[in-house]
């Protein structure tokens, strides 16, 4: 079975991208989506040793907040289960931010530096050492690298005629990415999701394009969208390779 894929980017950023893939089956599209959410591992703080915590919050509540801080993860250098230590020492009056954490590994840093952990008042002190572990979203949502991952069918919009003279002029709302008759890809946000804005005075017909999926992928900053997609696809391939090997013996 030969696969002929065609990938086209509609929006491309490090943390957020929208791209069209042609030649997919729904099973593959959903496999890739699910793998991006649950199977690509990220580093996240999992256990914390408190030296001092005289803030208004319990150790456990602070530990939970720390777990939700995304850490930049370079997947070439770590295997699942590997640990990295981070430390923080902040005395009030001040707010402890994610960026105040000092990592033992230079390239593992909080993906965002301005996440507040807790506000400390005069005389309050927070000091801890925390171990971040590499694990997948399957075990805990804090390890999800993809935070908003989904896909829609590409929709083809065809002009079939003019609107009648006494038309009500009601909006024709559509969301997603459309393909015009010239083969142009336009996200509906660009014209307020209203087809009557893009095709004024025209009657249009909308139909799904078979096998064409528009993915919308956002990451938490642990790695780029590109890395996330490629790792997800790789994980499917690795599992297929493992299965092939195991049924052959």
């Amino acid at each position: 079975m030969a696969h002929d894929f065609d990938v086209e980017f509609i929006e491309r950023g490090d943390r957020k991208a929208r791209f069209l893939v042609r030649g997919l089956t729904p099973a593959i599209a959903n496999g890739i989506r699910r793998a991006m959410i649950a199977d690509v591992p990220t580093l996240s703080i999992d256990s914390v040793r408190f030296v001092e915590n005289s803030s208004v919050m319990f150790d456990e509540m602070i530990a939970l907040r720390l777990g939700l801080v995304p850490l930049t993860t370079s997947l070439d250098d770590f295997e699942e289960g590997d640990e990295v230590t981070l430390a923080l020492d902040v005395e009030g009056p001040a707010t402890a931010y994610s960026g105040d954490m000092v990592s033992s590994v230079e390239y593992v840093q909080p993906a965002d530096e301005n996440i507040p952990i807790i506000e400390l008042k005069e005389g309050q002190h927070l000091e801890f050492e925390a171990d971040a572990v590499l694990d997948s979203g399957k075990s805990h949502a804090k390890h999800q690298g993809g935070v908003a991952v989904g896909y829609r069918h590409l929709q083809k919009v065809e002009v079939v005629g003019d609107t009648p003279e006494f038309d009500d002029g009601e909006p024709n709302i559509l969301r997603g990415v459309i393909e015009t008759e010239d083969g142009e890809l336009i996200h509906t946000d660009e014209f307020g999701n209203d087809l009557t804005q893009q095709f004024p005075g025209k009657e249009v017909e909308v139909s799904d394009v078979p096998g064409a999926f528009v993915f919308h992928v956002e990451t938490d900053g642990s790695f780029t969208v590109e890395e996330l997609v490629l790792r997800a696809v790789e994980s499917l391939g690795l599992r297929a390779a493992e299965l092939e090997e195991k049924v052959s013996v």
Binding site: M1, A2, H3, D4, F5, D6, V7, E8, F9, F19, V21, I28, I32, E226, V229, L230, V233, E234, L236, G237, A240, A241, L243, E244, V247, S248
Partner: peptide
Amino acid sequence: LDAVAEGARSIQAMTDSFRDAFTAA
């Protein structure tokens, strides 16, 4: 069992060609 192995092979071919198409874009 051979059919399952063949299916697994075709998934690997699919992921390889997806990776190539994605990196080319």
